[in-house]
Each structure stands twice: as C-alpha cells, then as structure tokens.
Design a protein around this nucleic acid. Structure first.
Lengths: 335, 335
DNA sequence: CCGTAACATGTTATCGGTACCAAATAGATT
DNA sequence: AATCTATTTGGTACCGATAACATGTTACGG
C-alpha cells in the first residue's frame, strides 16, 4: 500500500504550508475562504484522512469521554448510553465504553485502562468503587461523574436517584394496598451493589411499617434476568402462596416471576402482587402490566451530557453538582 | 495541577534511560529483571500512567477496533458486542463503538469519524452501505468485517447468516402446520434493511409454496419494538381473524402482537400462529413461548473476534473469509 | 589476558499535527 | 509616497513513546 497522505502532502499539492492546511481543515476564519475551499478540495481529491490520534497527542486533548457500564446488555443502561451519546454528539466528543460486569474489581482494571487513553472526563455507573479506583481517579485533574446512584461520598459530580428511596415508595404503596407478607426476588451475592441497595431499601421500609420480615428469594448470581425470576418462584413451589407480594429487583425478573405465577395458576394481583423496577418496555407491554419504578434512564444520560458540556465550555462551577433525577412509582395491574 | 509524569521522569528517578523504562513497562525480557521490578515500583510510586495516545501515535497502531451497530439498545446487538468485546479482551484491543440508528447515511458519517482514529480493523453490522462508505473503506488497507448478513458483494470478511433463508425456514414450518393466510408485521420504511430482507424472505417463500399473498402490516418506522407490534394488531381490529399466522420481524414485536391477540381473546396458536425472530429472552419466557429463529448473536461477536485475532496474528489468509453461523428454527408454543 | 558471544542499556530520529510567534501582503489613511 | 492597520500565511519546536541502531558490560573458553 502507498504511504499515508498527510497534511504535508496536501500542503505541497496546494502550494501552502502545512500550518495553513491545518487551519483550513479546522475552519479557521483567518484563512482566506478561497484558500480554504481549495485546500478542502485537494484534501478530498488526495483521499486525505485527518489523523485524530496525532491531534490528540499534540494538543493533549483526546476527545474521549470514558464511560463504564455494569452491562451493555441492559435496556436501561443502553438507554443511558444513548442519551449520553446523543447529548455529546454536537461537542464532538467520542465515548469510550467499557463494561464492568457488575464488579468493582473489573471496574478498577477498566478505569486503569481507560485512563491511559487520556479521557477528558470519566463517567462511572454507580457510587461504589475500590479504594484503588478512587485513588487512580483523584490523582488526576479530571471531571468525574457518577450516575444511577446518589453516593454518600461522591468522587465528583452526580446524576442519579436513590434506589433505596424508590423501593421505599414501592413498599409503602404495597402496604397501603393491604399487602403484608413480602418476598424479595433478586441476586443475593454482593456484586450487584445497586441491587443490594434496592433490597436494603425494601427491608428498611418494611421494618419501618411494622411488616413481617421480608424473605429473600435467591435468584442466583448477578446479573439476573427473566429466567432467574421464573426459577426463583418455581423453586419455592407451593410455598409461594405464603406471600402476598413479590418485590423484584428489576422488570425482567418481575416478568419471569409473573409468568411463573401464571403457570402455577396464581391470580396476579388477586392472590399475589408482583412489582418490578426500571420501567422497561416489558413492564408496560406485559399482560397484566407490571407495577414498577420509572427510572429515567435516557434522561440520566442526557443530564450527564449537559453537565459535561458545561464543564467543557468552562462554565464556572461552584463545587461538584448533584442532580437528582428522581424515580416515580408506575402503577400497573400487578398490584 | 502539577505536570504529567512521563517516562522521562521515571527514568530520571531510577537512573536509567527512558528507553529502558519503555522496555521495562512492556515487559521486555531483555531488561534485567531486577531493573524491571525497580522501574515498575518507581513508576507506581510516582503515579505514572502510561500514555496510550503517544504509543498509538508513534507506532501507528491505535489499538482500536471500530464497530458500528444499528442500535446499542437491542439485546441481540448488545450480545454481539459483548461476544466481540470478551473475545478481543486478551489481544488488548479496545472497541470504539458507534451507532447508526439503522441509517446508512449515519453509518457513513460514523465511519468517516471512526477512521480518523486509525482503527486497526472495522466491523460493520449489515451488508448495505453507501457508495461513499465503500469508497472510504476500500481506500484503506484495513481489515473489514461485515456481520449479521451474508452480503452479495462483501467489502471484506463476513460473519453472518441469511435473513431471507431463515424466514423461508419459518414459512415452510408454518405451511407444513397448515397455515396459509400470513400477515407480516414489521417496519415498512426502507431504513431497516435487515428487516426488509426478512420481509422479502417471507414473501418469496410464500410465493414458492403457492400461499395467498402475504399482507404487510405496518408497525411504523424502524426500529420497531413491543408496543409497535401491539399497535399494528390493534389497528387491524377484527380483520385480524382473517389471518392464521402473523410473522413478526423480531421477538419483541411478536411479544407485543401476542399480548394484543390475547387482549382480543384470540387463541394462540389455536386461532392464529405468531412467530418472532432472534430468540430473545422474551421469546422463551413468554407464556406461551414464542416460535422464533435462533440467531447466535453472541456467537457472531465471538466469531468476529476469532477472525480478527487471526488477522492480527498475521495468520495467512487466502482471500476474505465468509463464516455462515446459520440460524435455526426454535419451536415455541405459538405455532 | 584476550577475543567473542550473550546480555543489558543508551542515542537519535521520528510518528502528524498544532501552539506560538514572526513575517509578508493588501488595503486604507494621511 | 509613506505609514499604518488588518488580513493572511509561514517557520520552528514540541507533545511522549519507541524503532532501529550503537554501545557498553559481563562471562567464559582457550
């Protein structure tokens, strides 16, 4: 293959200096418009392709925003990513995506790797990180955004909501509808910390309201989905009739639970209530529609994008910003 | 903030040349092991962070593999991405993800942008591209992989299956079960070309089998999902009873169709069959389970990763490789 | 004690843009 | 015509790592 076409080549062909080409291609007003057009023309004809790597190196600005997600295979996180991606589009920033598989250790390695690319900001999902991760990040003068949580001790900016509070709303709703014997369906290992927060939120509010102890139904290791919800219920067997509400860590799990209840000829919500979390599409299309918590996944991404745009534009900040996007009860037909 | 720590600084601190530091950090065997340990130690103490941008610039190897997906918010594409990501992990390649929103024009701009980052390979979803995109790509000596399709005129390597063929299998199955009057539920605009291929596959096989003309039920513009399927059916009203099978472009759509049929008190599969595509989780958890086409989304990603590893390792290739991962009928309870 | 191989480290130039400063040219004003 | 300002262009050094080559150092047999 022939050697790569550089600005030098374009400059030579046009008869100007590389500097002028550089300016022209960045649409610098100081370059005569006719020259600019000519340069663009020739660059195109020669098949010149701008080298962002070289630019990133010289200017020490990578044009990257690093993002960590627990899983890309989750409609809510995917929506957040889209919101972020669309929101950052105009600024010309590119997202560098990495997935942690719900593990803070994996997150640590990911952060380490991402930092070597010199991102101009980093967006983390969740507020739980290893000490090493915290150290790595604070050693750099880099905008940090934590999303999807409201961490007690944030690393920087925050865009999220309280999982525990949202679950409290849900439990209150169930109690007010006369439900007392609650089961919680979710992962019981400790890797999915957001799931753990939800579980703890359920338990805490149940205690506050004087409900019987919430029983934890193991759905296996995170991440849990439809089939795990179904399995958890079928593992219970006839004991499922002891409950009058099953609170699930997410909508897919709730859908699995719902399907399994139906197979067992339980009436939902007559015999038992089922609730989800996240307001996934499946919640509203399912029949009956699932009562859930509406999280504004896309909005989280958009808010993060707005925040970052402000930071990049140099808008003065008085301290880290905390945006609580909230989460609301979405009543379906399963409670 | 203090200036960034570079290899120079580490070198000075240890009392060796930057070159030795460079070698040590890449675990070059020729550097004495004691020196290597010392250098790692000092680098760590100084908070040195390797600069991949500089490396990428100097070596002219970005360490990036560019990937375009129609949508990140689609469980199947997300799975493919994961398969690819996990498969490429060991090689140290990072994925640069962009989403085209099912538009070849957006794909073109995306490709243009991605190319400026000097990716070492590019992976495109689908086999339909603008001429400009094709030109941009072939002007570079860059491994290209098209996935999820079997394009007639591939740009490079291919890992995919034939959407039309898969649909033919499905239609044959329906015809053998005595279904004759088919409706097709999918997007009717022309942006989702994979969807169009599926539709054409249905029509073609119906013609071959001498079935009555397949009626196209519009589910709105791509991408279509659960609610669009439901809407398409409810828009039909009582006319839905004219059909004895509804073939849907995807499982989420089929699920929406199924739910709506149920609301309309239709017996599935007694009165009408419903089929999906993609073997999404929802197909197997839904009650009744949805008959669908099992595409090996994750496997596609893994196969692409294997292919790329081979290419990076320099394994000699005799021409572009075409991997047909196939797609199989997954019988559920809706047909 | 020397030559040579094996090992370990150093020197120099360079990847492709762009910040910074200098200079040339055109047009306006006195 | 000379001077000045505005506009447009050019020259040079450099971002941080590393390929390619050169040099130094040790070990060992003869």
């Amino acid at each position: 293959m022939t050697a790569r076409v550089t600005m030098r080549d374009v400059a030579r062909a046009v008869g100007v200096s590389p500097m002028t080409v550089s300016r022209a291609l960045r649409d610098d007003e100081t370059v005569n418009e006719k020259t600019r057009r000519k340069i663009r023309q020739v660059a195109n004809d020669l098949g010149y392709v701008y080298d962002t790597t070289a630019q990133a190196f010289r200017t020490q600005k990578s044009g990257f925003v690093a993002v960590t997600l627990p899983s890309i295979n989750n409609a809510n996180f995917a929506e957040t990513f889209r919101g972020l991606s669309d929101g950052l589009g105009p600024s010309g920033m590119q997202l560098l995506l990495g997935s942690t598989n719900y593990s803070v250790e994996k997150e640590q390695e990911l952060v380490r790797q991402l930092l070597t690319r010199n991102p101009e900001a980093i967006v983390l999902t969740g507020g739980h990180h290893t000490d090493e991760t915290r150290a790595l990040l604070s050693a750099r003068n880099l905008p940090i955004v934590e999303m999807w949580d409201l961490p007690a001790d944030p690393l920087g900016h925050v865009v999220g909501f309280s999982n525990a509070e949202a679950m409290a709303t849900l439990v209150t709703h169930l109690a007010e509808s006369g439900r007392r014997r609650l089961g919680y369906v979710g992962a019981t290992d400790l890797t999915d910390l957001r799931g753990a927060e939800r579980r703890d939120g359920v338990i805490a509010r149940a205690v506050e309201l004087g409900l019987p102890e919430v029983e934890i139904l193991d759905a296996g290791p995170a991440p849990v989905s439809m089939r795990h919800g179904a399995q958890a219920v079928s593992a219970l067997g006839s004991r499922v009739r002891e409950f009058d509400a099953l609170v699930c860590v997410s909508d897919p799990v709730a859908f699995g639970v719902l399907s399994e209840c139906r197979r067992m000829s339980l009436d939902v919500p007559g015999d038992i209530a089922v609730t989800g979390f996240g307001n996934f599409e499946v919640a509203s299309v399912s029949d009956p529609r699932i009562t859930t918590i509406g999280v504004t996944a896309r909005q989280i991404g958009e808010q993060v994008a707005l925040l970052l745009e402000d930071l990049f534009a140099g808008t003065p900040q008085d301290g880290p910003r905390v945006v609580n996007v909230g989460a609301r009860l979405v009543r379906g037909e399963t409670s």
